[in-house]
Nucleic acid binder design. Structure first.
Lengths: 205, 205
DNA sequence: TGACTATACGGAGACTGTCTCCGGTTAATC
DNA sequence: GATTAACCGGAGACAGTCTCCGTATAGTCA
């Protein structure tokens, strides 16, 4: 386990006082337990169950993570890095624009469905600066921006395309996939429509 | 109040025995109360609260509506008709294909967001025949089919377009609108991308 | 090493919402 | 007016959220 303190590797505005050893231990156990429970029960899994599985009292859980979203935020700590990496990879890949887009969108959907209910939470937080996971959404948004802007500059997309609308649309697809219990592969037809909707009309499939 | 028995005006496979007068009265009061509570509190509003507001015991509620979805199904009884009507109107409207699509899609989003959480429920039920509101989704699907098929026949859309993918995609948009608390108008940019993704490449905006 | 204190723990329990069970009531029928 | 099948409603079991506060302990300094 990586033993990560809150807000470490974060944009780091406020300096965080290091946790006491036992507190750090419990923090890590809670995040691990949460990952487990959310994976099997979805984002609505019981918080007391998480505390129990981590071997701590409910009070401890709520002290570390006042709300459910704070906990979700914590277990997405490294998730951000993966999203950014994928967006870089998409930009640099040596394939046609359509292919770049499709890969990136599929990645996006995968990331947004890391557990049941995650996509919905992310969609909701995307326009809500007060949400603890708002920053995660900004990362998503920025990553998508990178890919879309790059493709606009390559003249592959209509220049009227607004990246934010695109990320919203794809997060809609992710939500549907999540809610309806579809496989990521089944998202491809929808994603292709989106792709057709933003590329310049020339190389039509 | 219309005093409607379950499954009336429905595809009517099973014949339903009429309810006793008091039962019918309570049924109607429950539906009305549910409409109120869902409207102000969203699809997760308390069921006991609905029972209380209808002036009946919780037992009565659960006898009439074993699950939350059964209740939602009931209060959407006339909703179906409006959806169908809108799809007809879209087909018959004397406007360009893009305009037809945009109107229809906006209608679709409106219908799917009749109360908070509704869009998510509908998206989830769309591929789940076991859901009490599955039939409602079929209606949605059929209505969308009507519009899309008509436009394919008019040669306005690429013929590779699959109506079911389109309705999924738009329900994704509706879910985002719902979750993020957006206005229906803010869905237009997303819907236009979808439209660009399915019309034949000729009359580009 | 021992004592001190800020920090953290944990579980009892208040609260809210879901859902069931069953003794009591009432509408319909003859 | 008596009979009975259908229906009512609320007490209460159960599960999840979240708080409060007495107790424990890690870190620190002499």
């Amino acid at each position: 386990m990586a033993s990560i303190t809150p807000a470490e590797a974060e944009v780091s505005e406020e300096v965080v006082k290091p946790l006491r050893a036992d507190a750090q231990r419990n923090y890590d156990k809670l995040v691990a337990a949460a990952r487990e429970v959310f994976a099997e029960r979805g984002a609505e899994g019981s918080l007391d169950e998480i505390a129990k599985r981590a071997g701590v009292g409910p009070g401890t859980l709520y002290r570390h993570f006042p709300t459910r979203d704070d906990l979700i935020d914590a277990l997405m700590r490294d998730w951000t890095d993966r999203v950014v990496a994928d967006s870089m990879a998409a930009v640099e890949a040596d394939v046609p624009a359509r292919e770049k887009l499709e890969r990136w969108f599929v990645d996006l959907v995968k990331h947004m469905t890391l557990h049941r209910g995650a996509a919905a939470k992310l969609s909701a937080a995307m326009d809500d600066p007060a949400s603890p996971i708002y920053r995660k959404c900004q990362m998503l948004n920025d990553a998508n921006d990178r890919v879309i802007t790059h493709l606009i500059e390559t003249d592959a997309l209509r220049d009227s395309v607004e990246p934010h609308q695109v990320v919203r649309l794809v997060s809609g697809v992710a939500t549907v996939v999540d809610q309806a219990g579809l496989d990521v592969e089944q998202a491809r037809p929808m994603l292709r429509i989106v792709i057709d909707g933003i590329v310049r009309d020339s190389a039509t499939s």
